[in-house]
Simulated scan of single mutants.
Amino acid sequence: MAARAVGVARAQGWAGVVAGTRKTTPGFRLAEKYALGVGGADPHRGGLGGLMMLKDNHRALAAAAGGLEQMILGVRRAGGFTRRLEVECSSAEEALVAAGAGADIVLLDNLAPQELHAAAAKVKAAHPGVTVEASGGIVLETLPQFLGPHIDVVSMGCLTHSAPALDFALRVLEP
């Protein structure tokens, strides 16, 4: 699945990163992350500790923290200067706030392709050093619609949670 997705991206002339997500089969995370790498995709993060990430459920707490910008600044202080911070955003406006507050990566989640590309262009125009990641329901058939000049990473959960299982067996033969 990873090799197919990377092949689709390269056939479109897109040089960005195709990545999996953290969504893996319980007990098989290492094998599935390894498979992503073998297929040419990035394994994203190995677990919750691999990257500071503010997801949509954290955004609900942002109001109590004084807004998204204050929450990001607090997470930055708590995480230290050596950790990268990704913020999941559902609009161009959120992405611009996140990038302005110090996010290293803005994840534009569940946006339609046209909306995604417009949001990514706005983020890159204002914050060219920020990594823009697209995610949310992207599958091999729709992948080309999400590739574009302002998208650095496309992450796809289907590379692990929907990859077909390999049927194999081990037989021990007598010499």
Rank of each mutant, 00 (worst) to 15 (best):
G13K: 12
W14G: 04
W14K: 12
G16H: 09
V17W: 14
G20M: 03
T21I: 00
T21P: 11
R22M: 02
R22H: 00
K23P: 05
T24H: 07
T25V: 09
G27C: 08
R29A: 06
L30Q: 04
E32I: 04
Y34R: 14
Y34N: 10
L36M: 09
G39R: 01
P43Y: 14
H44A: 12
R45G: 05
G47R: 14
M52H: 01
K55S: 04
K55A: 02
K55D: 05
D56G: 11
L61D: 09
A63M: 09
A63Y: 08
A65F: 11
A65S: 08
G66I: 03
G67V: 06
L68I: 07
I72F: 00
G74A: 13
V75E: 00
A78R: 07
G79R: 07
G79Y: 09
G79T: 07
G79A: 15
F81K: 15
T82M: 03
L85T: 13
L85S: 14
V87F: 08
E88S: 10
E88R: 03
C89M: 13
A92N: 01
A95H: 02
L96T: 05
A101H: 11
I105L: 07
V106G: 12
L107F: 03
D109Y: 02
P113H: 07
P113V: 14
Q114N: 13
E115I: 13
L116T: 06
A120I: 02
A121F: 00
K122A: 15
K122E: 15
K124R: 14
K124P: 03
A125Q: 15
A126Y: 07
H127Q: 05
H127P: 10
S135G: 14
G136K: 00
G137K: 11
G137Q: 12
G137I: 01
L140D: 05
L140R: 01
T142K: 15
Q145G: 02
F146V: 07
G148Y: 13
G148S: 12
H150D: 15
D152I: 07
S155M: 02
S155K: 00
G157D: 02
